[in-house]
Amino acid sequence: MVTSAADAQTAPLRVVSMNLCTDQLAMMLADEGQLISVSDIATDPNMSPMAEAARAYPINHGQAEEIFLMRPDLVVAGRYSDPVVLDMLRRLGIATAQIDIVSNLDQVSDRIREMGEILHQTARAGELADAFEADLARLRAAPTGPRAAFYYPNSYSLGTGTLSHEIITIAGFRHIAEEMGRSRSGRLDLELLTLAQPDLIIHAELYSGNSRSEEVMSHPALAHLGAMRTQSNADWVCGTPVVLRAIQDLRALRARMEG
């Protein structure tokens, strides 16, 4: 939704994005020169699948003062972006638009079209959304494959109401969170994980150095399970067409696991 005293019917010519997921959608859809800044995290390859493309844009750190000095006529943000920053920008007469997060892959095309309306790039957004829906339908598989679990530092695990759950089940894996009735994400005791005996454990890339939060990832009990292990990466973070790569990678992994 666009919020401003400015004319919402006029196509924005100077757009700033201050959220990783809106960064990606804006880079996919904006006209040349229309997008003038993306968030600093957009250039981090550990978090952003479009880090190389993002380096072509000036970055912002999500601060009202620096964004105001860029003279945007529209700022796009996420549903949970800093409300104080957005309120200040609106009081300074700058239009803002917020896009909700994606927890279901069927919502991706909606977000694409929403960004297309915000940027006045509806035809381009429609083509991208249609292509995404066709590719998703082609990749969709019944969740009858190996059983998978998410396990991150501090024993954090993902529930069924997440984008990552959608990614693995559409790729054909079964998620142990469904068996456990875990709709929400949160701590999963190592004992419960080992009792569940998943065939695949998915974790984030471990960083170099010493971190007590990551010690659980090398616990002997995990090695004793004998489960295959793989990593989630930047392709999993946002509900954009990039998630198709994550699904393709998992489908290939499932084929190897099933012989």
Rank of each mutant, 00 (worst) to 15 (best):
A11E: 06
A134W: 05
D87E: 12
A177I: 01
R174S: 13
R187S: 06
T162M: 06
G145Q: 03
E179S: 09
Q63C: 14
A221S: 13
R182N: 06
A255H: 08
Q197P: 00
M257F: 07
P58E: 13
R212C: 11
M27S: 09
L190I: 11
N60P: 02
Y152G: 00
Q197R: 13
I59C: 04
A53Y: 06
H203R: 14
G172A: 06
D31T: 05
A56N: 12
G209I: 02
Q34T: 10
M180Q: 13
I168Y: 01
M50K: 10
H203L: 12
R256E: 09
P49Q: 08
I201Q: 01
L128S: 02
A11H: 00
A171N: 06
E215N: 15
M217Q: 15
V38Q: 03
I67Y: 00
G93H: 09
P241F: 05
I170M: 09
V84G: 05
A171F: 03
L92G: 06
L158S: 05
S48Q: 08
G181R: 07
R174Q: 15
P198W: 12
A95F: 00
H61K: 13
V85F: 04
L195W: 04
P146F: 10
D106R: 12
V15L: 08
D73P: 04
E65Q: 15
N210W: 14
S208K: 10
R138W: 05
E178I: 05
F68T: 01
T169H: 04
A196V: 02
A53Q: 14
L35E: 05
V38F: 03
R111L: 07
D40H: 12
R187Y: 12
H203D: 09
R71V: 07
P83W: 11
E214Q: 15
L158N: 02
P45M: 13
I99M: 11
I118Q: 03
G33M: 07
R91D: 12
L92Y: 11
G116Q: 05
N210H: 14
A149N: 03
R79W: 11
